[in-house]
Design a protein around this nucleic acid. Structure first.
Length: 865
RNA sequence: GGGCUUGUAGCUCAGUUGGUUAGAGCGCUACAUUGACAUUGUAGAGGUCUCCAGUUCGAAUCUGGACAAGCCCACCA
């Protein structure tokens, strides 16, 4: 790639597109170009083809890409397979609106075929746009394998499953009560209906008994449905109504005769305890109606209007009918009253129109069929831990949902989607992939629920059953989705996967939380509190956005995002870039590459290499255990607080270019999955001529045999000593520029001498006096473990300040000492803890005792002053 | 009605088999421009880990309960 200027600050905008092109051209997004026997696969959730990249996508993609890149660097053939979803109902709603707004026409003006073609073109166009946005977040997906749910092959495989299930007796067509959206004019499954509690009224209506002056009072929130009542139900044990069971009611307004029946589904304590039964327009009434073979009268049609069965109310809308019926009942003195009541309103998930429960002929999946029970088989598989859930509790939720699963309505009265593979000729019915031989056959006009095809996504995309990709990559390793998709998508994939392929479609199922705003509110267009991902990428860089979406986020739990947060991660990317600039400046000066096997010379070298070694081990194991956030945070702390703040500073005094370069290059590799752009940018600047990619460099390994650092590690002693000196200088308001003299006694001499240059520089020391006599006049004692030095202050020391400083230190240490003592005197602790831990604790105690003794000693001499 | 989740510094959150002298980032205070970085550095203040009981030698961590917040599911008309 062309050379980039090494700017003072990292400029993400100037790098990102070029780096992405570099990766894409390398061909390594495609696992076929990676030489390995180990494979890793993650089928990416297909976003709706009509959409735009939002934070939800970005957070999922970041998780997927981090693991994809991690596995690739570990040397696996790593496949991230992208795709797009036709999103049946949603796309049709969007596109119909577009037609209406732009051309003032409906889908009927175009006709089914033309409408389908136009929608297809629209999707292709939008998909291209969407793809370009997916690339911006740095997604290392294999675009050569990208699929669309309506691709010929993908469709055929999804349809094949319908046919197979049909012949296995798991799919049937039946007349049942379903959720009907009058606006979308289609049936919906239960999950596509949302419930919203709204304030409303519950009305009490008097139903006169036949041949009597008595009434039975029923309570209802939907009086208009009374036109279709075919019974009144009471609980069999309800004393108030026991004598009425079996009697006949004269339904007001229509004067139809309907029976009073007993059903134990009725709650005696709710309302009046008597319920009007409308089998055609209420799910519970439908069930009761079926139990008692009641007549089903459809009085509301598919547009939400009263049908001709509604007599004088025919042609009115539901709400008009409600008002008129209440007025009419009032006139007849049959309206007893109304009460405020919270109504659970059912709405279409897509267009928010009120759902009308209707009886309709639809296709259903029998989830508990005799030959194969999707429900039971899935639960069985989940209970045997075939899939590892992140977080774990989602598994229980899925099982619970499956246990309560009803048959799934899969036919939609839409034009956009997979056409149901069933043909009719008079009474004949045929189910198959293609139309049957002979003439006169007509295909079912309905399409399949979107989730019927996306539920099969992991294997239809790979080409189940017999392609090479299936053999190589199925079952897949990893699946990520927002927690809101648990019931829509995850459960369907589990059910289909076990049925069709006899195995779990993925080994790990990872849920991201929902992104919320700074106040914890859901982001939405209407609230105007949304954050535009692409704008954030433009302003802060994709790496910053990636970090802001993963660090501090817990699987399955919502998290808050706001600009300041993204900005701090932009600052981190910049920090890394500038560490890179420092490392590069060393290299350029010497005009040779210093990378190689690092040989430690100083205590600092040994320290940083030891720390690096444990960080490599920790990060690797955290990532292998899906602990993204923790891995990233540890890495950031190491990079910034240990490497940059200490080792880089020390390198300015005691140079070991090989160690510096080695540690930095290792850090770059560890960071690459999280922040691919800035790390690759640094790598490309490092080795412009070498044509290597950090993206496919090998993941660092840790040396597990290395000895563990002890608390008396020389570098840590010096480091703490320096911190204590800085602290004391601040207490005494000694100007940072002012250098001071210290005295060192014999016990501390060797460590101080070995680190003299860096110690002098970092603690701002002028001169080190080596005295065997502890000079106490006009000096302040500073200690760090067994290390002791005395600061010489020119003026008289402030005994009061000193005393406060030491009293405070003493109190802290005494607290610690008592805790240690308690622990070590504890029999159970001594019995159970590992010997090396006990030893370490004992060592700590000894050290504390020694320090405390020194402090006491010092306090006495302070008193003497 | 059932289920799930959360409650740790002013704010956002870590803290994974119970043992660290409870952490980070932002914000705040005081200094600082020393060979990359002010998108920076040094130091500091700030927490009875929501509350109550229990298990334990030891609990932010485990158990039970209370309180608060949020989410999901469900056919109370």
């Amino acid at each position: 790639m062309e050379e980039q200027p090494i700017t003072t600050a990292y400029n993400a905008n100037e790098w990102e597109n070029k780096l992405y092109a570099l990766w894409e051209e390398s061909g390594f997004f495609n696992p076929d170009n990676i030489d390995s026997d180990i494979r890793y696969a993650n089928i990416l959730p297909p976003p709706n083809a009509n959409g735009e990249l939002h934070l939800g996508h970005a957070s999922g993609y970041t998780v997927m890409d981090i693991f994809g890149r991690f596995e690739r660097m570990k040397g696996k053939k790593s496949l991230l397979l992208p795709g797009k979803d036709h999103a049946g109902i949603q796309t049709q709603v969007v596109f119909e609106k577009k037609l209406e707004n732009e051309q003032g026409i409906t889908r009927f003006d175009l006709g089914r075929e033309k409408f389908y073609e136009a929608t297809y073109d629209f999707c292709v166009d939008r998909a291209n746009y969407m793809r370009s946005q997916e690339k911006r977040i740095g997604l290392s997906a294999d675009w050569s394998r990208e699929t669309f749910t309506l691709d010929t092959e993908v469709s055929r495989r999804a349809i094949e499953t319908f046919v197979q299930m049909y012949h296995d007796g798991m799919i049937y067509r039946g007349e049942r009560i379903i959720n009907w959206c009058p606006r979308c004019a289609t049936a919906l499954s239960d999950v596509e209906v949302i419930h919203k509690d709204i304030p409303g009224k519950i009305y009490s209506l008097k139903y006169p008994l036949k041949d009597s002056n008595e009434y039975i009072v029923v309570a209802t929130t939907r009086p208009e449905t009374m036109l279709g009542d075919t019974a009144v139900a009471v609980h069999p044990d309800d004393e108030r109504y026991k004598t009425l069971i079996g009697k006949v009611v004269l339904l007001p307004l229509t004067n139809r005769e309907i029976p009073i029946i007993a059903s134990n589904r009725i709650d005696k304590d709710f309302g009046t305890g008597a319920v009007k039964i409308t089998p055609a327009h209420d799910p519970l009434d439908w069930e009761i109606g079926r139990d008692h073979s009641l007549e089903v009268l459809q009085v509301i049609d598919e547009k939400g209007m009263i049908t001709s069965l509604g007599g004088i109310y025919a042609g009115l809308s539901v709400m008009e009918a409600r008002t008129k019926i209440l007025t009419d009942l009032n006139t007849l003195h049959l309206f007893e009253g109304e009460q405020d009541h919270i109504i659970s309103l059912s709405q279409c998930e897509r267009c928010k129109t009120s759902i009308e429960p209707l009886v309709s002929k639809q296709w259903f999946v029998n989830v508990d069929a005799q030959k194969y029970s999707l429900k039971k088989e899935s639960i069985k598989a989940l209970e045997s831990n075939t899939i590892i859930f992140h977080p774990e509790n989602m598994k229980g939720q899925m099982i619970h949902w499956l246990e309560n699963l009803h048959d799934w309505c899969i036919s939609r009265q839409l034009w956009w989607g997979h056409r149901i593979p069933v043909w009719y000729r008079d009474a004949e019915i045929y189910c198959g992939i293609t139309a049957p031989e002979g003439s006169g056959w007509e295909q079912d006009p309905d399409t399949l629920d979107t989730w019927f095809s996306s539920g099969q996504w992991p294997y239809t995309t790979l080409g189940y059953p017999d392609t090479k990709d299936v053999k190589d990559f199925y079952p897949t390793d990893f699946m990520v989705m927002g927690r809101d998709l648990l019931f829509f998508w995850a459960t369907r994939m589990v059910m289909f996967g076990f049925y069709k392929t006899k195995m779990s479609p993925f080994k790990h199922l990872y849920f991201t939380g929902l992104v919320r705003d700074k106040e914890g509110q859901k982001m939405s267009k209407s609230k105007g509190n949304g954050i535009n991902v692409l704008e954030m990428i433009d302003r802060f860089g994709a790496d910053a956005v990636r970090l802001s979406l993963t660090l501090g986020a817990t699987p399955g739990l919502d998290f808050r995002l706001y600009e300041e947060k993204i900005a701090t991660y932009r600052n981190f990317a910049n920090k890394l870039w500038n560490i890179g600039r420092y490392v590069m400046s060393i290299q350029n000066k010497d005009d040779e590459r210093k990378s190689g096997s690092p040989q430690p010379k100083t205590d600092a070298d040994r320290w940083i290499l030891g720390r690096l070694n444990s960080i490599v081990g920790e990060i690797t194991s955290l990532l292998e255990n899906y602990q993204l956030s923790l891995a990233g945070e540890k890495l950031r702390d190491f990079t910034w607080n240990e490497f940059a703040d200490w080792y880089v500073e020390i390198h300015k005094i005691e140079k070991n270019d090989v160690v510096l370069t080695f540690v930095f290059e290792t850090i770059l590799k560890l960071w690459h999955p999280f922040i691919p752009y800035v790390t690759e940018a640094i790598h490309q600047t490092f080795y412009p001529e070498k044509n290597t990619l950090l993206m496919i460099s090998s993941w660092p390994t840790s040396d597990k045999t290395t000895e563990k650092p002890s608390p008396e590690n020389p570098f840590d002693l010096i480091k703490n000593l320096i911190i204590t000196i800085r602290n004391t200088r601040a207490t005494y308001h000694i100007e940072p520029a002012k250098k001071i003299t210290v005295s060192v006694n014999s016990t501390s001499e060797s460590i101080i001498s070995a680190n003299e240059a860096m110690f002098k520089r970092l603690a701002r020391i002028e001169e080190i006096l080596h005295t065997h006599e502890q000079s106490k006049n006009n000096t302040i004692l500073i200690q760090s473990g067994s290390l002791q030095i005395f600061l010489h202050l020119d003026g008289a020391i402030d005994t009061n300040k000193e005393r406060i400083r030491f009293e405070r230190e003493k109190a802290e240490k005494e607290k610690y000492r008592s805790l240690l003592k308690l622990k070590l005197e504890n029999k159970n602790f001594i019995d159970r803890a590992k010997p090396e831990i006990i030893l370490a604790e004992q060592e700590k105690l000894k050290l504390i005792e020694k320090e405390l003794a020194e402090i006491d000693h010092h306090l006495i001499s302070l008193h003497a002053l």
